[in-house]
Design a protein around this nucleic acid. Sequence first.
DNA 1: TAAACATATGAACATTTGTACATATGTTCA
DNA 2: TGAACATATGTACAAATGTTCATATGTTTA
Lengths: 117, 117
Amino acid sequence: MYNNDLPPEEIFYDLADFFKVFGDPSRIKMLYSLYKKELAVGELADILDMNQSAVSHQLRILRQSDLVKFRRDGKAIIYSLDDEHVFSVLEQGLRHIAHKNGLEEDAYEPQNYAERS
Amino acid sequence: MYNNDLPPEEIFYDLADFFKVFGDPSRIKMLYSLYKKELAVGELADILDMNQSAVSHQLRILRQSDLVKFRRDGKAIIYSLDDEHVFSVLEQGLRHIAHKNGLEEDAYEPQNYAERS
DNA sequence: TAAACATATGAACATTTGTACATATGTTCA
DNA sequence: TGAACATATGTACAAATGTTCATATGTTTA
């Protein structure tokens, strides 16, 4: 009767898990910040005003989702976005929010909040 | 020292809330199903093998996020995606998953699981 | 109008999730 | 090598979330 011809069940769980990672303000801020430039864990903690442990825990989730990559530089570990594609997901959300707020769709694009210091 | 020039705090919460809606397998399945054709609540419950109450609760979340619209048709209430843009978010996720599974990026596109009955 | 049907909503409950605290691991430098 | 620094991880816990059950609301039809 109904069309049950959906992709394998597992796909929907994977997909939900993927979006779930974007569903937390702290992680969103991390990704947004990392889009501008790579950052060490401590820098992220300062920028986001979170304690180091919380940042590490969230970075683990981003790592496990392959959204960020990292390298060691002396004592520090430097994180960056895994690929440009990651940010394009964010961008789509940003446009949605901007639109709902009655703003130009690019209102929240990072280039409009660029480094000035 | 660090670049604190981020968009208003609220944006990140809105953005997280937006993605949070996509972060549940049941809601993802609903959106995926609704992409193919509009569906009544009871039809969704049958297709997704969920009870009617759970479906209604989730539909409320989708409504409040403006991801779906609805109309009454006799006793039934028919739901559909609010706009094509909603699905393009899903699509981006689907491509990500397909790629991670070593498949063609369009492997999970709905047209590849089209109505056949 | 009363019964049947379709959907929505409130409350309760188990599960998941994000954070803080304490501590472990790993690196640099004196 | 030992102290200082940077990050990761285990545990505990409060808050958020999804589902079920019971019931309310709204529509059709006999």
